[in-house]
């Protein structure tokens, strides 16, 4: 294993171990989206009676929301952990070792990706057990997992950037509502063409989160939709790229070792 891969593995392992040892940190993000899935898929079932609604199962329609919510929680966890490292001086301890900046970032994201992967598998399994049929088949399910992991990676990296910028867990926590707002003003509850309030539909249309949700949703309820998939994967990869760039720049500022 190359030096950098070894360092990434070490940092990711530490990140996963510390998360696993705090049940209060990982249980709510794992269960909360499931509770919301159960409640909203029934509470909003009446929406399937709207003319033009694409499926008669609101659960199938709503499943992608859980992946997105899980990714946001993973982002908050990754960010809070790194912010605590900045705050306590642990980042300085790491900076005094030969660890490379890239390894530190990718390793920390690795923790978020690990948690995101576990969450995605659980959400998908619960959805399948609850009777959701994935129209795109097994390949579609794999692609959903892949996109969910990419989204968790993107938001996880964004969380790192926020942590490096603010340097405090409180700072990360107070930014979390803003990220959550992106989810709320997306097409999470209704397809965009059924949103009748113009300003909201416009916001949902320019919101990249809508496209990530719609890519996953297309695989569940309508099969292989190339345009939706390209947009969803494109925005997820763009989020990863931009977040990594921002985080790497901020890490240089925060870890200004010579």
């Amino acid at each position: 294993m190359s030096v950098i891969a070894h360092q990434v593995a070490l940092i990711a392992q530490r990140s996963l171990v510390r998360t696993a040892r705090q049940p209060g940190v990982w249980i709510p993000p794992l269960t909360f989206p499931l509770i919301l899935m159960a409640v909203n898929s029934n509470g909003l079932k009446a929406a399937t009676h709207l003319p033009g609604f694409p499926t008669n199962s609101f659960l199938a329609f709503f499943v992608p929301f859980s992946f997105m919510q899980g990714a946001l929680f993973a982002s908050a966890i990754a960010g809070t952990d790194l912010a605590r490292d900045v705050d306590t001086g642990f980042l300085n301890r790491l900076a005094l070792t030969p660890v490379r900046g890239a390894a530190l970032l990718i390793g920390q994201v690795g923790g978020a990706v690990g948690l995101g992967t576990i969450q995605a598998v659980v959400y998908l399994a619960v959805a399948l057990l609850a009777g959701v049929h994935i129209v795109a088949g097994i390949g579609g399910a794999v692609l959903i997992l892949l996109l969910a992991i990419l989204v968790a990676t993107g938001f996880g990296t964004l969380g790192l950037w926020i942590a490096l910028r603010t340097g405090s867990g409180e700072g990360v926590q107070s930014t979390f509502p803003l990220l959550f707002f992106l989810l709320l003003i997306s097409s999470m509850n209704l397809p965009r063409n059924l949103i009748e309030v113009n300003w909201f539909r416009d916001l949902a249309t320019i919101n990249p989160v809508s496209y990530m949700i719609e890519a996953m949703r297309s695989l569940v309820i309508s099969g292989w939709d190339t345009q939706a998939l390209v947009l969803g994967f494109g925005f997820a990869l763009a989020l990863i790229g931009i977040s990594l760039l921002l985080s790497a720049r901020q890490l240089k500022v925060r870890m200004s070792r010579t």
């Binding site: 929406a47 709207l50 509502p177 959550f180 707002f181 097409s187 059924l194 949103i195």
Partner: peptide, 21 residues
């Protein structure tokens, strides 16, 4: 902020539900 965001999301995103029979 949370109630305001929820309000915007529900009132803006779900108003079509009033057409449900």
């Amino acid at each position: 902020l949370f109630p305001l965001m929820n309000f915007m999301s529900f009132a803006g995103g779900l108003s079509r539900l009033r057409h449900v029979p």
